[in-house]
Design a protein around this nucleic acid. Sequence first.
DNA 1: TTGTACGCGTTATCAG
DNA 2: CTGATAACGCGTACAA
Lengths: 346, 346
Amino acid sequence: MSVTIKDIARLAGVSIATVSKVVNNKDFDISEGTRVRVQKIIDEENYRPNSLARSMITKTTKTVGLIIPDVRNPFFTDLARGAEDCAKENGYSLLFCNSDDVLEKEIEYINTLVEKQVDGIVLAGSINRNKALEEKYSVTVPIVSLDRKVYFKGIQATVEIDNVTGAHDAIEYLIQSGHKDILFLSGQEEVDISKDRLIGYKKALEENHIPFNPKCVIFGLYKSEFGYQYIMENDLPKEVTAIFCGNDLIALGVIKALKSKKIKVPKDISIMGFDDISLASINTPELTTVKQPSYEFGYIAVQRLIDIIEGITNRKDKFEIKTELIIRESTAPRRNDTKSDDDVAE
Amino acid sequence: MSVTIKDIARLAGVSIATVSKVVNNKDFDISEGTRVRVQKIIDEENYRPNSLARSMITKTTKTVGLIIPDVRNPFFTDLARGAEDCAKENGYSLLFCNSDDVLEKEIEYINTLVEKQVDGIVLAGSINRNKALEEKYSVTVPIVSLDRKVYFKGIQATVEIDNVTGAHDAIEYLIQSGHKDILFLSGQEEVDISKDRLIGYKKALEENHIPFNPKCVIFGLYKSEFGYQYIMENDLPKEVTAIFCGNDLIALGVIKALKSKKIKVPKDISIMGFDDISLASINTPELTTVKQPSYEFGYIAVQRLIDIIEGITNRKDKFEIKTELIIRESTAPRRNDTKSDDDVAE
DNA sequence: TTGTACGCGTTATCAG
DNA sequence: CTGATAACGCGTACAA
């Protein structure tokens, strides 16, 4: 239906080769006169080259795939935006996929993306991996994986956030504020980020000669409901004066529950999050947290991918992004006395 | 590089036509024996058809474009997820574009999408339209526009949220709760949704014989910063007992500012939002709001688009989605006395 | 400076 | 039941 290069050639009275050249700015070959004439017809006819046909020749689609568990997770929404921005700036388009953290969906998407001839894939892998299964898939396009190891065969690179240091810095800060008994309300135990953050947690304790108490680590889900329910259903040990939450959503749930239990934040207990989602600063009290530069994360991942696609390989294979401690209102120095009831005013 | 239909044909000792048939399940033509043999080779070689080549023939890419202002706006993140889910369920892929509410970017994206031969586009148009400019573009693929009129030439349909009724219901509820002086903190005046919500606001007032006071309508931005700053920088008229906010983000900002001014919500003043973003229920107090089914919005828009693409046109051209009043904690009946200071306990 | 002709990987038609 | 072959729209050596 739509107008093709052939139509333009006919209308301009030239060959398709000539049209092709002016379309692609290979017009060092073409006389000014015909160039202008052809261009005019192109504009008049509102001609747009069919990129499918072009891709068949050039073997590149200028399209990359993005697979994430769920955009609705605030961490991934920023990441997705960063990824899209970088893609656009480099002239690429982004195919958008949500895996819901299930490996089968992820593989399904990878297949589709490969069939659609994407030039590469940015993959925030789903939680449960299956090494044996994955290794059977040799993906023919470059993959940049985020935060999680994946086992597909093929060219790969990884971009990671330094969760160990992030958690370490958070705990170190709490310790410096006088806290010793710090509850760690984590997400799923199996996830790499949970493991790394636990390592950072232990490390900071150890450096400060505070014994590690396994009972102070609780695994749950990276959702506000988990934080809320845990607090509602459990009595906190007397000695706990701070809670380090696996992410901001958990922290927000915790704060909500504490409010309903009339426990003051940060007066009675300090709360830290992880992520720095946009609501961390809207909440009352504003959340002290470890900022993950999720926008940059997505941006850099796509940049790495495009570098690989375009053959710029002079970068290391593993790229690490630093977190940043954001101190706001939900944390405070530990009070010298034990929690008391003598001070209920706001 | 990768294995093609030709390779499979050679390996299986059949023609490419035969391979094509078993790939596409047109195998009513093929003997069971060869079908199995060919399938075996396909599996062994991990063959994936090149969908570019296929699309050139079939004139369909099974890909649609989604253009939204910004995924980071919670309303659009849910919408995007709904869109993707519907696309996937129908065997389509989604090309993901953020226009930042600027028309030029939007047009750029449309051009790219058309070049990539998408089968259709779901477009949440940017704020400032330019009828003359748009009408010069005849988009050759179907467009389903969301919430906002667009003027591109071509096959079109619209999916809208009934903002008039949504706002009306909200104000009606406040009035029934005894409020009469209701401040409306809206977003940008030029936007269709702002206009529609204002209509609903006026309508509810009128129905209840409450005179409309133009000073009670303030236009700003659909961001929490607007709500926060407005409250911080302005003294509310004594008589105002409720604020209807243009969206939840504004409402969250308002509540934050009120807290810092020691004004209690909902005791001293009732606050309503619009959208029902996930944080509305995490916030303290939980936000009373008008739920926009944004996930469904995206889902239905893509469904409509695919219906058009696949020639199922037996649906009306304009599709309207209803909102839902969600009553939580940030609103309360108006107290009979004027605001007093005799009651500062929690 | 411009045009011819081939090929990219597939589907669809039609002959065998 | 199976296989040649044209066609899809374009880019590019190579010929003119």
